[in-house]
Nucleic acid binder design. Structure first.
Lengths: 114, 114
DNA sequence: TAATCATATAAACATTATTTGATTTGTTTG
DNA sequence: CAAACAAATCAAATAATGTTTATATGATTA
């Protein structure tokens, strides 16, 4: 039961739901999330850890960077994440999305995280 | 988004999940829940209110008593409640269930809430 | 209509979650 | 291998939730 509760608790926070929306656009590293969401790095790491402990996302270290993405190994969690990202409009995170696009453009020009 | 969060928050508590398990056996009034769960009446009322505000249950007043039951008007909430009650075994609330059965027996003998 | 019963609400307190600022760990690169 | 960078962790401050005790409200019944 505690495992189930940890999933619902992870989904009970605006910042974390917005993170899931961002993850839906693909894998992202902590430093990029920090700049996209404009929040302190410890805060971002804290929320990532809550999502990870709940089994909703997974991490992958690549050199200095740790990339996070949606964990699709469990169907119940997948369903929840899918429903959440569907119920929340892109409009809600439009500021983040535009920063994300800028970031990706910059990476193509070799300026960050490469 | 806050509405969605209120649903997940409501599901993020052991007492409330156990309540949903009990509701699955049918409508129940506050006083019966108090004796079945052996918790203070304000505590029960507090948690019932959280579930109600999240749209997961509904209430129906009948005389002095207020009966609560699962609100099946929304399919997403229905799915969540169904999944939750499926993932949590009856074993988890066996003490409550045996009290519930005793209560129902007593009611047939006209001893309570009638 | 006064007494009683069921439930809700409020205030005070306890517990848990989140945020912040500082520090540590792990990795790469000059 | 020292400096620099990315991310995690920790302790302290703050905010949000849950619990308890006391009181209020609403309905029934004697």
């Amino acid at each position: 039961m505690q495992e189930l509760i940890s999933v619902f608790k992870a989904l009970s926070d605006e910042t974390r739901l917005k993170m899931l929306k961002i993850f839906q656009k693909g894998e992202i590293c902590v430093c990029d999330l920090v700049s996209v969401m404009d929040m302190s790095q410890p805060k971002i790491s804290f929320h990532l850890n809550v999502l990870k402990e709940a089994g909703l996302i997974r991490d992958r270290r690549q050199g200095k960077w740790v990339h996070y993405s949606i964990n699709d190994s469990d169907i119940f969690r997948r369903f929840l994440v899918l429903t959440v990202t569907e119920k929340i409009t892109d409009e809600t995170i439009k500021v983040y999305l535009s920063r994300l696009i800028k970031l990706k453009d910059m990476k193509n020009k070799n300026k960050c995280c490469k």
